[in-house]
Design a protein around this nucleic acid. Structure first.
Lengths: 351, 351
DNA sequence: TTACATAATGTAATCGTATACATTGAGATT
DNA sequence: AATCTCAATGTATACGATTACATTATGTAA
């Protein structure tokens, strides 16, 4: 391990003091043009990089942002993190990315970790805004942060996300427009994320507006969809309400649901309609494409960076912003075959 | 921004010196059990976390590992990073994750960034082992690192990955076993990654072993598959070799290829067979499931952590290891319909 | 000429931690 | 009683940068 060049090495090499080198490197204070040139060339030849550790220790800022997402393996958050990284980079910041694996304790420890690294601020998606110990910790420490995807009802902090409630309500009305009357929902466990709750509430509300009740709610582990197969088998195996359409609270669940339904000999969309939420690539690549709501994940990441940095600069900024979502017209939402069958029968009598 | 408690605060609060606190916190040296208890409770009540910055500055190690992957949005690397994080966590290290976005310059700057953070070592996937400026920088600095997914022919450093050449050769023999004779390959651009090169070389070799030549090679931008549609349209539009099977150098490309072929009215696997490489979830969720090679991405990440830490501890360890891959029996590789058609015709005459 | 503003650079303290070395005290050995 | 061990703890320095303040040089006004 060769020792890296320090500011002292540069100073010595140029015959100036460390203060002057620092001034040149940080472009602060007055330095003779000639000296600047001398120092800059020394920096280049010696391959000097200021130690972030030392910088963080001494000064308030080390131009580093922490990022915490629930999972690296969910494309939604991967895209968000990617958006963060791109924007942070463009604005001269380095993002440190950690994942909480949907675990409240890891969420907290991620925050504490990032604090230990003296980051300037944190961009994060928490499992649940209301109960997050991580947020409490951040508030207490007074460390600036911006939520991503979480859209708190009672705003407690900066946030960037889509209005999950409203989007889910729109999904409801779209599904209804296709003539479905018996509708179910597959959701990640409510205890785990506020997004799941919001989407559920919005969907219920959208249905209720048309006087329809949710026929079934299946809650599964969002990571590997444990129990989904069993639940669907039960529902379609026994007498009772047999949904002709399902709203899944994210696209991965939607794809899993479609696969399980095929196994039950319920082809999508011929017999059952499915609508997802996220608009991930995997949904778009299949045939027919998954009908879904696309959230602007990359934009959420970059907008969150801007919001946080504005906060750091004391620039008067939005306190939070809801970004638009987009209806993805795929092929997995179709006219209710059962209803249309009935209708054609009825019309026979009517004519 | 409330100031965090420092080691001094703890020392004062307990009426001991900072040295004692440090000893307790780092579990080093001898301290009276009673004192340990006192300090530990103070740490808890004051919410003390040692500053990584200071620690990095003073001591050689801050128990931090850098991670550089080509893309957060490719599930392969997301899984790998996830594996790294889990294992690092378990071993008391914090991973700092950066993505290079498949860009050589960003790759280098990511390394330099991590150096500035004084990480203990780096786990990374580079675009191309042979030409990587990032690796040159690491070697020069003498910073320990371990490659992930890159399997250098002439070993220059520790690595964990699968034998891409061999795996691709196996794919060739499998495709051939299904009676295909006109076979193409869709690959990420060779200039960009050594994995693409290895898979190509292995596939060619596998075909050649059976006396078959590769009929078409389509190289596309691995991020958004630009030009794929055009290339396929050309190939199937004009006279000449019409492949009945394609090997795609990764699953995302495979899914994209399938979608494009459907548009050309070439259903998979009825008319065309497709084999991918990676074994990502999106491939498994579709119907029929994508036939592919599954690489143990999470294991690659965690094994790489172990290898690097062994290196750091000067434990005599493997210098590199090839992990096993797995053939994923999906539904997108089928018997060559053209051949079987011919065969049935021929058998008519034969009988 | 003297005084003074200003530009350019240097000096030294500081951030929070780790650690080599010094110190203290108590029990064991002579 | 004097000496020695060893456990337990304290003191003080260093890590690499930033920055307030000090210093020097130089040109300008009185």
């Amino acid at each position: 391990m060769v020792k890296a060049a320090t500011i002292k090495d540069i100073a010595q090499h140029c015959g100036v003091s460390v203060a002057t080198v620092s001034r040149v490197v940080n472009n602060k204070g007055v330095v003779r043009a000639e000296t600047v040139k001398k120092v800059e060339s020394a920096v280049l030849t010696l391959g000097y990089r200021p130690s972030m550790a030392a910088r963080a220790l001494k000064s308030a800022s080390n131009r580093t942002l922490g990022v915490i997402i629930p999972s690296l393996m969910n494309p939604v958050f991967a895209e968000t993190a990617s958006g963060v990284q791109q924007r942070a980079r463009a604005r001269g910041y380095t993002p440190l990315i950690l994942s909480s694996d949907y675990d409240d304790e890891l969420e907290l420890s991620a925050v504490e970790n990032l604090q230990a690294y003296q980051v300037d601020g944190i961009l994060l998606t928490v499992n649940d805004v209301l109960s997050s110990a991580a947020l409490k910790q951040l508030d207490q420490a007074g460390l600036p942060y911006c939520l991503m995807h979480n859209v708190p009802r009672h705003r407690v902090a900066g946030y960037i996300g889509v209005d999950n409630f409203r989007a889910a309500a729109e999904v409801a009305s779209r599904i209804l427009a296709y003539g479905h009357t018996c509708i179910g929902m597959v959701s990640g466990e409510f205890v785990r994320t506020d997004r799941a709750r919001e989407r559920h509430a919005g969907f219920i509300a959208g249905l209720k507006y048309a006087g329809v009740e949710l026929a079934h709610l299946v809650q599964v582990d969002p990571v590997n969809a444990t129990g989904l197969q069993q639940a669907l088998t039960n529902i379609y195996g026994q007498s009772g309400a047999h949904p002709t359409a399902w709203f899944c609270s994210n696209d991965l669940l939607a794809l899993a649901t479609i696969a399980r339904l095929e196994l039950l000999d319920k082809p999508v969309p011929e017999q059952i309609s499915i609508v997802g939420f996220d608009g991930i690539q995997a949904g778009a690549l299949r045939e027919p494409a998954l009908t879904s709501i696309r959230t602007p994940n990359i934009d959420i990441g970059s907008a969150a960076v801007d919001l946080l940095l504005a906060q750091l600069d004391d620039t008067p900024a939005d306190l939070g912003r809801k970004l638009g979502y987009q209806w993805v017209e795929g092929g997995t939402l179709a006219t209710n075959s059962y209803t249309s069958h009935n209708l054609s029968n009825e019309s026979k009598y009517d004519v």
